[in-house]
């Protein structure tokens, strides 16, 4: 009797205090492990093939050209959607003193992981960043972003960039302003979107398309639906040994690396 009474009281409290309710159903709640989307797009990156600088450069320049990402030399203010970082920075829990020479201090291609449980979406105060249920992409509704930068602090992968200034002058200076893709404004946060605008037209992301043009880049990036067992990405993930960035944090990254 006492137990039941306590449970009822706890449930009652839970209704009035969201935090208690969340604690009571910890884990299994809305962002629980068991919840999987019907479609989750993902990418498989072949680290070996991406060791070639031409491959990595082709990805980045294709992406940044496609999405009106300005080139800002100042690293404090730079904007990047897909870029390279050191192996030990990308995989801090994998790198050790005896890491193979092949990977040690070598650059790895990184981009937004389109997490299964994105921290950035959880902290977003306006709902501008959200996990889209139809394809599992972590989207930013630029019309709603107020530039609070909580998401930048929350993202453990550093995938987000802030527009410290109006990007248009920098783009116009280089003559790379594209008229068919919107730019951002000063004070907005941006990141990789797996090229939603291209997916809508049935095309592959710009980076995936770009690596195919580079000799030796074939298969460096593979893009597809992770929830479809017959897709190319699913086949690769079944056959090869892959690692993810900072799995221990539990955000469920959807970009996989073949080592």
């Amino acid at each position: 009797m006492k137990g039941i009474g306590f449970a009822t009281a706890a449930a009652g409290l839970g209704f009035s205090f969201p935090l208690l309710r969340a604690l009571a159903s910890s884990g299994a709640a809305s962002h629980g492990e068991g919840e999987t989307l019907s479609t989750q797009l993902g990418m498989v990156v072949d680290i070996k093939k991406c060791l070639d600088e031409n491959v990595r450069r082709a990805c980045a320049s294709a992406c940044h050209l496609e999405h009106n990402v300005p080139e800002i030399p100042d690293t404090a203010e730079e904007i990047k959607w897909i870029w390279s970082e050191d192996y030990k920075t990308v995989f801090p829990d994998q790198a050790h003193a005896r890491t193979a020479d092949m990977y040690k201090d070598k650059p790895v291609l990184v981009l937004c992981n389109q997490c299964a449980k994105p921290a950035c979406a959880k902290v977003c105060i306006t709902g501008a960043t959200f996990k889209r249920e139809s394809d599992g992409i972590v989207m930013i509704d630029m019309h709603r972003c107020v530039g609070c930068r909580f998401c930048i602090a929350a993202c453990p992968y550093g995938a987000r960039s802030f527009n410290f200034r109006d990007p248009r002058p920098a783009l116009a200076r280089k003559g790379t302003l594209r008229e068919d893709y919107p730019t951002r404004v000063k004070g907005a946060v941006e990141k990789c979107t797996f090229c939603v605008e291209r997916l809508r037209e049935g095309r592959e992301p710009a980076c995936v398309e770009a690596v195919k043009q580079v000799p030796g880049g074939e298969g460096a990036l593979t893009f597809g639906d992770l929830s479809d067992p017959d897709s190319e990405v699913s086949r690769l993930l079944r056959e090869k040994h892959t690692i993810c960035r900072r799995v221990g944090l539990g955000f469920g990254p959807n970009v996989f690396y073949i080592v």
């Binding site: 959200f130 889209r132 139809s134 989207m139 509704d141 019309h143 008229e179 809508r200």
Partner: peptide
């Protein structure tokens, strides 16, 4: 259209361009 395209991944009925 904006909300449909961004949030529901629908095809754009009309675009500014």
């Amino acid at each position: 259209v904006r909300d449909e395209v961004i949030h529901e991944a629908k095809q754009a009925e009309v675009k500014l361009k």
